[in-house]
């Protein structure tokens, strides 16, 4: 079995690993880096549960070869918080009960982060479109969408505050 030395940058940390080339990013994150916050629901790209960010865009880690995504900026749910401070999305999801069983939440949070990073004030329809690749069986998505809206408002307020403070 071909093993290859690879370099992955995950949540800002650089990891050097010797892995079989046919391992997916999902498997490497969970089994080699023990970052089990990234979940899996089908391993075929059919549910969105394993979503992580690569260079700020949501991708399915179950369909990504780890060797193909070296030297890119990978973010998992473990990398969302700012030290002990939850990301505004995490805060809003917790406050509004957007996580029921919680299993789809890591992937959903990351997809939502990509949305807000590119579109800080999305409409409800834009949120639905952006999250349409993340299945959730518990919530009916309603609290999830509301939480994204709340986080967007807070982040916008923070940005406005930071900008006014900088002036």
């Amino acid at each position: 079995m071909d093993k290859q030395l690879i370099t992955l940058r995950v949540n800002g940390e650089v990891h050097e690993l010797a892995i079989p080339v046919h391992k997916t990013l999902l498997e490497v994150l969970r089994e080699d880096l023990h970052l089990t916050g990234t979940k899996h629901g089908c391993e075929l790209g059919e549910c969105g549960t394993c979503t992580v960010l690569v260079d700020g865009q949501p991708v399915l880690s179950c369909l990504a070869l780890a060797v193909e995504w070296q030297h890119r900026d990978i973010v998992t749910v473990e990398g969302l918080a700012d030290g002990p401070r939850p990301h505004p999305l995490q805060q809003a999801f917790a406050e509004l009960g957007a996580a029921q069983c919680g299993y789809c939440i890591p992937g959903t949070l990351l997809t939502a982060k990509a949305l807000l990073d590119h579109n800080p004030r999305p409409t409800r329809q834009e949120i639905k479109e952006a999250l349409s690749g993340n299945l959730c069986r518990c919530t009916g998505y309603i609290k999830i969408i509301e939480a994204v809206e709340r986080a967007a408002q807070r982040m916008a307020a923070q940005t406005a505050f930071a900008e006014s403070a900088a002036r």
Binding site: D2, Q4, H22, T24, E43, L65
Partner: peptide
């Protein structure tokens, strides 16, 4: 977990 079969990658 469904996994890929082994292969060589270029």
């Amino acid at each position: 977990m469904l996994r890929l079969p082994p292969f060589t990658y270029y």
